[in-house]
Design a binder for these strands. Structure first.
Length: 884
RNA sequence: GCGGACGUGGCGAAACUGGUAGACGCAAGAGACUUAAAAUCUCUCGGGCCUUGCCCAUACGGGUUCGAUCCCCGUCGUCCGCACCA
């Protein structure tokens, strides 16, 4: 730097220095480096590499129109991993695509008279441009959109293969039908028994629908969870509960002849508590149970009751508050262990047809629901299990059932046995008589994939009056969606289309019609990660050897996304991988995601003005005497600062990534998303936080630019001083933190290093640098460490230092282990567990030396008050504790 | 109701799962530079006291241990998931 007096003259002659001393301008620099990476083809991944593979994937977005901060956080994390692994020498696959089918496109079509396809692709274009400004190291050559026939063609082929393999089937099912919108609704779309959009009372209808037989793999899906050691325990627990395995017994009860409807001889029930068989006081069957229907034929009152249950609401709220209700069918069953003992059969509203056999035996003393029911209908309550230390003579059940394990009472040959032994005894006896059978049951239901929708993957089936339902021949795939559709009428546009569904039967050639349903969009997202391994293959969904196997990409090494997909998407994908393996589309993959990380949400304060919520952009925060207040920018009206919520349009607490990237740059946005909060937790978006991140970016830039002339021609070399120690320690820690996805800790380590380097860099800039080779090495380390997080900044600094090539292409530096440990360490010295002083010793000092030195400390002597210590505990390189 | 997770400064959080509680950042305060502001730099920053030092602090109450944010028992609170699954 020239002396101040001549600076103006110097600068006018050297405009490049004017550039250099200005603030870092990400708006200019970021697009430049993005172009440089593109030009070098750095992120285009080859399937033919000898390097070990690493597959990093973030959950692909729905093309809603604009990216949001949640995307920024998700993709910033994935990009850190991708860039880091690339620097570590891995062949990294880091692709991006679009979950492009779905209802919003149809709503937009209906409301704005646009074609769903045009709407979707326009959104993709916008969002892709937004993602590009983030500077993500994505292989865009592999981009896919699930709404593209080149994608869903393969999905249709796999559907046919699943069908042939018995993993897909068409059958009748009870569904929520909205009579106004003419469509099936998902359970969560039914609110208080009414369609969420139409407000019409939803009907339960039997419709013939397509199912994927996920239940066929229930056990494997459950067992597979145990192998997923890099999944959050929470997600595994949720999936286990969802699959809901239970072990029990099916028991066939003979109907009492005199009371049995014609042709009916027995009732099969499922129970997990056969031990409580002697506590039975009634049987309960679902309203849809065949026996109920049969009994109702000659009993109009029963028929009316059943009809009433069928029209009762199915919403969660209604089920929760619904009172236990039943109706005695008049049919009686005979107890399997006592021919003289008969029990009544009720139709009950709390028994579900699609679990177990749709029938149970009620043991009021051992089940709260049964007890509620028994009290209401005045049925016997016989305690059959009591606590281990209970008294058989006095133990009774009042309003609370005893559901724990314990000791059997009032149970004839079971008396005195514990619960497990009683279970075994009953099972053994009933199995011997072929009356009972051990049975494993799952809560998991088959996956209903039919949707009466337009904007989805057509189900490639043809219905022929003569031949039945036949597959579309593979050569005719894809079955493409027609583009000339109308959304004027409610219901499925595919069904309304004048010509689309009329085809000839592939088998007999006669007149037939297409299946007009499309697939649930969860199907699309259940295999996209496999498609990314070779999206160029037009012949099949996957390519042998590339998809999986010794040189294949699967499984995904690190999958990152939101916790909201903990069950459905992840479970469906786990099923799909197994089904693809079963049908030869994969070789050996059962678990698609070896590592899963669920990131937290981006949350923000809410602001409420006189006319409802207002956006953060419309207000100004004022800080008066430590009290934060907010006012409208426009006219200064006070605004109430509300609770912190997930960013959402309805709360108007969204911050647009475009605005942030536009004013601070992508690096700042990325760095802030990675700082402070642990990635699995929610992160609070604050203006101050963004400014802090931006200050960091500017600070690194300024420190390096000012020191650059002194360091430009220096060869990096490790020294022995504080600078090298700090650099090597930080390098070690940051690498470990990134491996563990502890981005917030890596950021803290980087801050520490920058703080350490600030003074030496300032000295170098002023011309009194010491050990410049060590400083140069430390700076290069720093740039490598920030490169995964703030990649543009790293490139800009590297260029300023006169570095060759791109940081993005540089290998991760190697730390010197000797430099990461200190020769002298400071040990805390405690007396009775309370810290009384510090002791600086050689790192390899032996315990006796340390002990002597600790005892010699003045503070220790004072605390001991002249007494001899009873014991001295020396934990090498950790602590000394003197026990007085 | 069942299952799970979590409670640490004014705030977001660290603490190598038993070894200096509060790293790093935000906010706040004081100072330097400046005509001034911004930016930047330096310092202070859990509470208390008899302030070279000591006491109390990791939701609360116990326990184990030389030593507990961490392990065990109990209480309170917050969040999430499931919800008649027999």
């Amino acid at each position: 730097m020239p002396p101040l007096a001549s600076r103006a003259v110097f600068l006018s002659a050297h405009p490049e220095f004017v550039m250099a001393t200005e603030r870092y301008n990400p708006r200019a620099a970021e697009p430049r480096w993005q172009k440089a990476w593109d030009g070098a083809g750095l992120f285009t991944t080859s399937n033919e590499s000898e390097a070990p593979k690493h597959y990093v994937l973030e959950m692909f977005p729905y093309p809603s129109g604009r990216i949001h901060m949640g995307h920024v956080r998700n993709y910033a994390m994935g990009d850190v991993v991708a860039r880091y692994k690339r620097a570590k020498g891995f062949n990294v696959l880091h692709p991006m695509g679009w979950d492009a089918f779905g209802l919003p496109a149809e709503n937009a079509a209906r409301d704005n008279k646009v074609n769903p396809r045009d709407w979707t692709y326009k959104n993709i274009e916008t969002m892709k441009a937004q993602l590009k400004t983030m500077g993500l190291s994505l292989d865009w050559s592999r981009e896919i959109a699930t709404c593209d026939p080149s994608y869903y063609k393969h999905q249709q082929k796999m559907f046919l293969d699943f069908w042939q393999a018995g993993l897909a089937e068409r059958r009748s099912a009870k569904v929520n039908w909205d009579p106004v919108d003419h469509t099936v609704l998902a359970n969560e779309q039914v609110i208080d028994g009414r369609g969420w959009r139409s407000g019409a009372v939803v009907e339960q209808r039997d419709l013939t629908q397509w199912f994927l037989k996920i239940t066929a793999m229930a056990q494997e899906l459950l067992d597979g969870l145990d192998t997923l050691d890099r999944w959050p325990e929470k997600v595994k627990v949720m999936q286990r509960n969802w699959i809901g395995r239970s072990e029990g017994l099916t028991i066939r009860w003979a109907l009492e002849e005199a009371t049995a409807p014609e042709g009916e001889t027995e009732l099969e029930i499922y129970t997990t508590r056969p031990d409580t068989l002697f506590g039975a006081s009634f049987m309960a069957i679902a309203a849809d149970h065949p026996l109920a229907k049969k009994a109702a034929e000659k009993n109009p009152e029963l028929a009316a009751f059943i009809d009433e249950l069928r029209h009762a609401g199915t919403s969660a709220a209604e089920l929760e508050t619904a009172e236990k209700r039943g109706f005695d069918t008049g049919v009686r069953v005979v107890h399997p262990f006592d021919e003289s003992w008969t029990l009544p059969v009720y139709v009950a509203n709390f028994v579900l047809m699609d679990y177990g056999t749709g029938a149970i035996f009620g043991c009021p003393s051992g089940d709260q629901r049964d007890l509620d029911f028994a009290r209401k209908y005045d049925l016997p309550v016989v305690p059959v299990v009591m606590p281990k230390d209970g008294d058989a003579a006095s133990f009774t059940v009042g309003t609370e059932a005893f559901t724990d394990d314990g000791v059997m009472i009032n149970s004839r040959f079971l008396d005195g046995l514990d619960t497990d032994a009683a279970f075994e005894e009953v099972a053994k006896r009933l199995e011997a008589r072929s009356v009972g059978e051990r049975k494993v049951n799952f809560r998991l239901r088959d996956w209903l994939i039919s949707r009466q929708r337009y904007w989805g993957c057509p189900i490639p089936a043809i219905h022929c009056e003569v031949c039945g339902t036949v597959p579309v021949p593979a050569k005719d795939l894809p079955v493409e969606l027609p583009s000339d559709v109308s959304f004027d009428k409610p219901g499925n546009p595919l069904d309304h289309h004048p010509t689309w569904k009329h085809v000839s039967c592939p088998q007999c050639g006669g007149a037939a019609r297409r299946d007009t349903d499309t697939m649930d969009t969860f199907v699309d997202s259940s295999w996209y990660f496999v498609r990314f391994t070779d999206p160029f293959n037009t012949e099949g969904p996957t390519t042998a050897g590339v998809a999986d196997g010794p040189k294949g990409w699967m499984p995904v090494d690190q999958y990152i996304g939101g916790i909201e997909h903990a069950i459905l998407h992840l479970l469906y994908s786990r099923f799909f991988s197994r089904a693809m393996t079963a049908t030869g589309h994969l070789k050996e993959t059962s678990e698609p995601f070896a590592g899963l990380f669920t990131q937290g949400m981006v949350v923000h304060e809410t602001y409420r003005g006189p006319h409802g919520f207002v956006t953060p952009a419309e207000i100004r925060i004022e800080d008066r005497e430590g009290k934060r207040t907010a006012v409208l920018l426009s006219d200064g009206t006070p605004v109430e600062i509300g609770s912190i919520e997930k960013m959402s349009k309805s709360k108007k607490n969204v911050v647009d990534p475009d605005d942030i990237i536009g004013s601070y740059g992508a690096d700042t946005a990325r760095f802030f998303m990675l700082s402070d909060s642990p990635p699995e937790r929610d992160v609070l978006w604050t203006e101050a936080g963004v400014e802090g991140a931006h200050r960091f970016v500017q600070r690194v830039w300024r420190l390096l630019v000012e020191a650059a002339p002194a360091l430009a021609a220096v060869e990096p070399r490790a020294g022995t001083g504080a600078v090298s120690r700090a650099a090597h320690k930080a390098l070690k820690a940051v690498g470990e933190d990134i491996e563990r996805l502890a981005f917030n800790k890596a950021v803290a380590r980087i801050y520490e290093l920058v703080n350490t380097l600030a003074a030496p860099l300032a000295d170098a800039a002023a011309g009194n640098g010491k050990d410049l080779p060590a400083l140069r090495e430390a700076v290069e380390f720093l740039l490598s460490m920030v490169a995964p997080m703030t990649p543009h900044l790293a490139e800009e600094c590297w260029a300023t230092l006169g570095g060759e090539g791109l940081v993005a292409a540089k290998p991760w530096p190697v730390f010197e282990p000797a430099l990461t440990v200190d020769d002298e360490i400071t040990l805390p010295v405690q007396v009775n567990g309370k810290k009384r002083g510090d002791l600086t010793v050689a790192r390899d000092a032996d315990n006796a030396t340390v002990e002597a030195a600790a005892l010699a400390l003045e503070a220790v002597q004072r605390a001991l008050e002249g007494k001899a210590p009873r014991k001295v505990i020396v934990v090498p390189q950790r602590i000394v504790n003197v026990v007085a």
